[in-house]
Nucleic acid binder design. Structure first.
Length: 245
DNA sequence: AATTTGCCCAACCGCGGCAGT
DNA sequence: GACTGCCGCGGTTGGGCAAAT
């Protein structure tokens, strides 16, 4: 037989994460590290599947993440890496410390792609659109490049090989810091994580996990204790809690 | 001021590769 | 070697928000 399923389909919460869930997950992972995603939700006292926890952690909660929009240099680097790697977002993200594949993918789809198209560059091949079998409505050259793209005209130097001038291109737009980056103090959770209180708070508080606020509202779900006790199902004893000290 | 429209991004879904049994 | 499950990845969705009307 194979392994046990990663999560029970029943009773697994979906949708947006609450601050309380974030706190539990961060507490757990910072205290014990990432060992086995399947086990994390139960050990952390969360009604989520391991996959969801991993995603939340890697895309949002990791302390080493940069917050806010990609700057010009990063954007240029993404374009360059994409021209060589294609849609391998995880590989691209590896070249931008502190950025996630999801973030880069989103930024690409919402910003960069449109910019390139407006500039007459195919966002897939990175070739000028006029070199290809262009749709009739697609101009070879941007007829009226929007003013807000002027800054990119000289910057987006689609590379055929090697990293293009990301560094120098970034300097040309320093006067316009797109948007203020989200500061940690703006985000209650990140503020909490970075605070001394958080570090002092790193306790193995399983009792907290058993009091799910939603359970109080819904007696049918008030099986948190059973849920937590269920940990034995995948064998806490077998699970080498040596990684959890 | 109320409603509509469009954009952005966090999160979910499904698949492929790898590893355990 | 076959089967089963986990992990990681890329694609997609939908809710929230701001701008436009």
């Amino acid at each position: 037989m194979g392994r046990q399923p990663c999560c029970d389909k029943l009773g697994v919460k979906k949708g947006p994460w609450t601050a309380e869930e974030d706190k539990k997950l961060v507490n757990f992972l910072l205290a014990h590290g990432q060992c086995c995603w399947r086990a994390v939700p139960k050990l952390a006292g969360l009604r989520r599947c391991g996959k969801s926890c991993r995603l939340r952690w890697t895309n949002y909660l990791r302390p080493d993440l940069k917050r806010g929009l990609l700057n010009e240099a990063e954007e240029q680097l993404v374009i360059d890496l994409h021209s060589r790697l294609g849609n391998r977002w995880s590989k691209i993200a590896a070249g931008l410390p502190g950025r996630t594949d999801n973030e880069i993918k989103n930024h690409w789809n919402t910003h960069i792609k449109k910019k390139l198209i407006k500039m007459g560059i195919d966002p897939i091949t990175h070739e000028p659109l006029c070199k290809q079998a262009t749709p009739p409505e697609m101009p070879c050259k941007p007829n009226n490049p929007p003013a807000d793209l002027d800054m990119n005209q000289q910057n987006v130097n689609i590379p055929e090989h090697g990293i293009s001038s990301a560094a120098e291109s970034s300097s040309s737009n320093e006067s316009q810091p797109l948007e203020p980056n989200l500061k940690s103090e703006d985000d209650p959770l990140m503020s909490y994580i970075l605070s001394d209180t958080f570090l002092e708070d790193l306790t193995w508080d399983f009792s907290a996990s058993s009091e799910d606020s939603s359970a109080a509202d819904n007696p049918a779900e008030d099986n948190s204790l059973a849920w937590f006790l269920d940990c034995k199902d995948f064998g806490v004893e077998d699970f080498e809690l040596g990684c959890i000290n």
